[in-house]
Design a protein around this nucleic acid. Structure first.
Length: 835
RNA sequence: GCCGGUGUGGUGGAAUGGUAGACACCAGGGACUUAAAAUCCCUUGCGGGCAACCGCGUACCGGUUCGAGUCCGGUCACCGGCACCA
């Protein structure tokens, strides 16, 4: 009988739909396991082959956990608000809700097609009012606790999306989504105070089982640095506050720099003698995009402020003040003291503008470059009472001095900035606030949630950069919940990150209309035991959701400080690069490719894209080879954490393996127990697969099962052997496993599906062979192997090694000076020429 | 520039300091077939040799060790993240 994957997969998917073997039970006596994958954005293009990699891996983990007796929650949902859907809707004049519904249906079909064991009764959709009611509810709590506030600030403005972007959404000066130019623009925006949680977001990483690169990336992103805030008096009479991480170099501060946006620039207008030049520079800076401003190789620019000077507090010297765009208004105090001898940027600036450079730390050559080392290699000079100290001694000494004089103190700064939370778009959660002329911003009563998105015919972008909702006057004009007077609704909507910041909580209790999640469900399921997702979400979604969760912890909604106990990450799936020079036959072709595609042509693999024609559609793969082959191949493709390249050829190897498994049904011989011939191989494989699934080394787990099947073909197999193999296969290729389970009569025998059986156990003793092949080295080089009984004493194995013909030849004319025996593995004989 | 990671056959990739290349893909040869596909069997790191075998091999240079792909120091290349953060 042939392996008819299409029929088999249909049969079992229908069965599972009916039996619901993946239903999670809140409050069960069994130990719980909550495995989570990042819910997809339901794009019109459907599932990408990138999706099945993390989905299949976590599905395997979840299925194995069920077999190990856990009560498993493995849910799925859709992160369905967002720009692509809205843009598609505008272009095709279809309401985004309809587009979303279609896309969700298509995704659901594809996910079911791949046989994932999701609990389909717990699906969440961020655009469902019953869901976003609680997104709005959380926003209201943030607002009530002062963590949501509106402020005017320079924002990243995408010229194409006509929308404000978070810093995280701007990549290399362009919009992460559409690739258009991003410029700075002053806008009134809702902000979330994530910076108040900066320290906790660093500290609480400590106890978490996150892969190291996720932790370091988050820590770097938050960017904590310790230094001092120091007050500089000015000749204008007011004080300038600066932040520095090098207070030890204070005696070397020979000038100061303000960012062009610093409020003192305007304040000093009447005193500034060269106001025209200053104003021109400020104006120029305002019109530059962030990208232009941050361009690294450009020369430093700036203007010296004439008429106001700063006073260095340590020596009372008057020093010039500049404005320059290399100082950022958004970090520290927007003003710096410049120490050109010990800071690269200040050095470069000082050289160009002829500022004094005073060495205060010995150890470098300040004529050639700034000396920036902060270790003990430098000794303080030209620094009054700090002279002779190391840098490390000088920092606390000067900080204490500043505090004593009341002109400075230790200060911690973070690179992390508050989260720009409003978007001028239609397809997002409405912000549930109204602006009353008398009362200011007022929260809607919770009883009025959800605040529904108004149903409208047109959600086109506005030309003035306001939300499309602002044009819907019926909806906008309302009354104040506080005083009853006239009021207007907030017309901005929330960013896509809102819904995804707490969705894992909703899975625990998805149909609750009284609470976001019940205490009972949250205490039972929380925290998520294992969360797998992409590295691209490390500084965005992952950080945001940790922030929200901490806030919910503070207000008593959840019982753990952290949402996720464990975080792993998968590598991307790339496609073959059709323009790779390695595929060119002749030198001319290579040159042509290089000329046409540049460095792109030097990579064998690239991101899949329609224009390159290398997109792999999961539907096609499943049609041609079946879902089980798809699942198996995407796990076998390579190291889970690394990027991998899809290969149509290699898929066939996975299919071939499943054919070979299937054909074992006709090869199997009698015997309900594991056969003696295969015993150690079976136990070894169980051990390997058990361990490897726990660490997501699916590729080696599969390799072990392939080796076992090869053994079965070589030695034959009993029904007992087959039973163990099917159970091991079950999490990986569930349809095939169930069909083989049934065909071989195990379903009838146990009255259960394979997936409902206990996970196979191995006996450590049986994973070991009685006879061992040991390597024999001579002076560290492999020369032969010998077979000896397991755990044989050293004398026995040395004797056996010396008796070996090849070794005898090596030993001629030599004397044995030393032997090293590694039990059951290797013998190393150290020989010297005999005298 | 800073932080993190990676360099192993024609390819994807295996190897708690202990037999490098498991398991696959591709390729070559054979069996079956009128033929092809599928399937099965064999070969397959490089060089030499009829063979037994021998030499060389994990980016490069050096070190530690009886023994290094693995540990240490340095160099180079590539990938990812951050980037004028004072």
């Amino acid at each position: 009988m042939k392996y008819d994957f299409t029929a088999i997969e249909k049969k079992w998917q229908d069965r599972w739909e009916e039996v619901k073997p993946y239903a999670a039970e809140t409050g069960s006596e069994k130990p719980k396991f909550y495995g989570l994958i990042e819910f997809p954005y339901p794009s019109a293009a459907g599932l990408h082959v990138g999706h099945p990699r993390p989905f299949t891996a976590m599905d395997i983990v979840a299925r194995k956990k069920r077999m190990e007796g856990f009560n498993v929650l493995f849910p799925i949902g859709f992160d369905a608000f967002g720009l692509p859907t809205e843009n598609f809707a505008i272009k095709n004049h279809i309401h985004p809700a309809i587009v979303t519904k279609q896309n969700v249906e298509n995704f659901t079909r594809q996910l079911k097609m791949l046989g994932y064991g999701f609990d389909w009764d717990r699906v969440v959709d961020t655009t469902d009012p019953n869901y976003y009611k609680w997104t709005q509810w959380i926003f209201l709590q943030l607002f009530k606790h002062g963590l949501a506030y509106k402020t005017t600030m320079p924002v990243n403005w995408c010229t194409s999306c006509k929308c404000v972007l978070a810093n995280e959404e701007v990549v290399e000066g362009v919009c992460e989504r559409c690739g258009s130019e991003v410029v700075r623009r002053e806008k009134s925006q809702w902000m979330l105070g994530i910076t108040k949680y900066a320290q906790r977001l660093i500290d609480d990483l400590d106890g978490l089982d996150f892969i190291e690169r996720v932790k370091t990336q988050q820590i770097n992103w938050i960017g904590r640095s310790t230094g001092a805030e120091v007050v500089f008096k000015t000749t204008a009479g007011d004080n300038l506050l600066i932040f520095t991480t090098r207070p030890d170099t204070l005696f070397g501060a020979t000038y100061m720099v303000l960012s062009p946006e610093h409020p003192y620039v305007k304040r000093w207008k009447d005193r500034i003698e060269n106001w025209d030049a200053v104003a021109a520079y400020v104006d120029e800076a305002a019109h530059k995009s962030d990208f232009e401003r941050a361009e690294l190789n450009k020369e430093k620019t700036g203007v010296r402020i004439e008429g106001v000077r700063g006073i260095n507090p340590v020596n009372g010297k008057e020093i010039p003040i500049f404005i320059s765009d290399y100082v950022l208004v958004t970090y520290g105090t927007g003003a710096i003291m410049a120490v050109p001898a010990h800071d690269d940027r200040d050095w470069e600036f000082a050289r160009k503008f002829g500022c004094e450079i005073i060495e205060v730390v010995q150890g470098g050559n300040i004529e050639e470059s700034a000396f920036t080392l902060k270790d003990d290699t430098g000794i303080m000079v030209n620094s009054g009472f700090l002279d002779g100290m190391t840098v490390k001694q000088a920092i606390p000494a000067i900080t204490a001095w500043l505090e004593e004089k009341g002109i400075g103190h230790e200060k911690v700064n973070y690179k992390l900035r508050d989260w720009v939370f409003s978007r001028q778009r239609y397809w997002g959660e409405p912000i549930p606030l109204v602006k009353c002329e008398k009362c200011g911003w007022v929260a809607l009563p919770e009883s009025e949630l959800p605040l529904l998105l108004p149903q409208v015919d047109s959600y086109e972008l506005t030309d003035d950069g306001e939300s499309p909702l602002s044009k819907m006057t019926d909806w906008v004009n309302t009354s104040c919940p506080c005083c009853g007077g006239p009021a207007k609704r907030e017309t901005d909507t929330m960013p896509q990150w809102a819904g995804s910041s707490w969705y894992f909580l909703r899975y625990m209790d998805p149909h609750n209309d009284k609470e976001l999640v019940s205490k009972e469900a949250e205490e039972y399921w929380g925290p998520v035991d294992w969360y797998n997702g992409g590295m691209e979400h490390t500084t965005l979604h992952l950080l945001y959701s940790r922030f929200w969760h901490k806030f919910l912890y503070d207000i008593g909604v959840v019982h753990t400080k952290e949402p996720y106990a464990k975080r792993t990450s998968h590598g991307m799936i790339l496609g073959r690069n059709p323009h790779f020079i390695g595929y060119a036959e002749t030198e001319e072709e290579k040159q042509a490719l290089l000329a046409k595609y540049g460095s792109q042509a030097t990579r064998p693999s690239v991101k899949m894209s329609k224009s390159l024609g290398n997109v792999v559609n999961p539907d096609d793969v499943v049609k041609a080879y079946g879902a089980d082959t798809m699942r198996l191949y995407i796990m076998f493709i390579g190291d889970f954490e690394k990027t991998a390249t899809w290969s149509d050829e290699a898929v066939k190897g996975s299919k071939r393996f499943l054919d070979r498994c299937w054909n074992l049904l006709e090869l199997v011989k009698e015997g309900d127990a594991v056969s003696a011939a295969n015993e150690s191989a079976v136990h070894k494989t169980i051990k390997k697969v058990t361990e490897d699934v726990n660490t997501l080394k699916m590729n080696t787990a599969i390799a072990a099962m392939m080796a076992l099947v090869n053994d079965f073909y070589a030695k034959g197999l009993s029904r007992g052997d087959l039973e163990q193999l099917i159970l091991l296969l079950s999490p990986f290729v569930p349809h095939l496993a169930e069909e083989m389970w049934e065909q071989a009569g195990f379903a009838a025998k146990y009255g259960k599906m394979a997936m409902q059986m206990p996970w196979p156990k191995y006996d450590e003793a049986k994973t070991k062979d009685a006879i061992r092949e040991m390597a024999v080295q001579v002076n560290g080089k492999l020369r032969s192997t010998v077979k000896v009984p397991a755990d044989a004493p050293d004398e026995t194995v040395i004797a056996a090694a010396c008796a070996d013909e090849k070794i005898k030849r090596q030993m001629e004319g030599m004397q044995l000076v030393k032997t090293i025996v590694v039990k059951n593995k290797l013998i190393n004989l150290i020989l010297k020429p005999a005298k």
